[in-house]
Design a protein around this nucleic acid. Sequence first.
DNA 1: AAAAAAC
Length: 625
Amino acid sequence: MDAFDLFRKLGAGAKFDFKRFGKDAERFKKDVSDHYGIDFFGTGTTHGNQEQRAEEKQDEEGEVDAAAGKRKRQDEEKTAKKEKKDTQAEGRIWRLVFYTLRSVYLLNLISVCCQVNRVRMQHRINVHGCDVPDPVCTFSELQSEYDLNPRVLQNLSAAGLTIPTPIQMQAIPLMMHGRELLACAPTGSGKTLAFCLPLLTHLKQPANLGIRALVISPTRELASQTHRELVRLSEGVGFRVHILDKASMAARKHVPSSHKKSDILISTPNRLVFLLKQDAIDLSSVEWLVVDESDKLFEDGRSGFREQLAAVFQACSSPRVRRALYSATCAPDVEQWCRLNLDNLVSVNIGHRNSAVETVEQELLFVGTENGKLLAVRDIIKKGFLPPMLVFVQSIDRARELFHELVYEGINVDIIHADRTQQQRDNVISSFRSGDIWVLICTALLARGIDFKGVNLVLNYDFPTSAVEYIHRIGRTGRAGRTGRAVTFFTEDDKPLLRSIANVIKQAGCPVPGYMVGFKKIHSKVKRQLQKKPPKRSTICTTPQFVLKKGRGGEKTGGGVEGPKRSTIRTTPQFVLKKGRGGEKTGGGVEGGLGGPKKGADGQTKGDKGQKSSVGVQSKVQGTR
DNA sequence: AAAAAAC
């Protein structure tokens, strides 16, 4: 097979038509010879042209006699024959050029395609959908290719953001092309920025066209965080970015319809629905609707988010409205809904769906009983830990109970949940951010989206109600590539969900006792029930009644604790002992000294490592005061 | 269970 055949094969499907391209070829040939004065195709065209031109000049001057005319006619016949030959030769050359160029083009296409695939593979970007634009590898590409405001780019670098994260690489170009999408990327991987940049680019300039972009978040804390981020990014551009909260509602009374002058609005769903019902807000100008933590907002139930979200979707009535849904976890029903309702949907997944972030060192810790939890958390505090630490419990009541138990430990502990006032909530968040609070006890309120810089330990005091909730809770640490640690207490009551969460931990590359993975899969019906009704737990209180009655002046270090400690705490769950799986029971064993003898070697090295790097709380108290 | 409105 010679080169010509090869090119022909590469160019399969396209035929070179000399008649069609002849004019172009002629022009090209002329351009080349005029420009460079060289005979590009070796057909004597350069000379020929000059002679011809000289003759033409003579024609014009009218100095042609009859004899000369005759000679010229003979010449013309000769040249016509010659030209026919030349034309055939040229046709061959042009065909060769055509196929060469075409194969170069195809090879280039293939190589670009390979490059794009390599980038996607390297960053574990999975996309499903038609005509997906190539991922961008730098923020400056956004300026050159998508007309991102240079000031926004400047704000980005001022914030220390230099290269886009995988979700940003792919989701930003998609939204820039106005594509509706469902994005799923791990906790702390930059989803917020992935939708903020396209919003700012899409709007281009501040304009009095009503609300053009709307972001929905499940909690006020997340809404205000997104608001802050957008304000920071759009600094100096003049966009009016507003959050719909109590303060803005109060302001609305004095300046009615102030939010109508927003370009971008961030809100929790119910407040928006409330305003919609009063006919006090107009969303018909919304061009981009972003649903953050989409699976949470799609949660069903009589008084759930889903209904509220549906009302918001309906209110965004512009035919031009584009929608983007983001979350770290993706429920099948959300995907189904997107496939049915979004226009030409693209779904983007970074890494494996519904998996925990790999930068968190995760542990499961058997604590025997409710008392065991309290003992274990006191132990963590006493042994010394590196603040800040987040402690998750399952209900507001239990949060209060735990707070009362820990408030006397001599550490800066506080509590946040939806029953506290907005003022209290804001204060708690800001003092936790500033480091004034070391331990923050919280409900699911803080489970999603909240970005605290450098949380060192997430403690699941109460077992999460699902693997998804587990993923979000532990995602408060190990953000933006930093490392973090998560400890999850469990008792016999938590057996039903142990398997699924153990699997999440295992998939993220952390050790898990073998027996857990061997558990039977629980029925999805039971799983749903568990989410609605978590196991009933006894009150958090280890202090004997007579101590409580007398008041707790100096005894706060836990007088009543030492005694029952050894007798009540088992280090191995009953369900393991019963089955008698000798060798496997040890991995999840007690770590951090709950009083029982350590039977496993697995967790110990980790424990030691943790201790070395942590700061003793007592010494910290002395040091700071 | 938690979250999301307020007069």
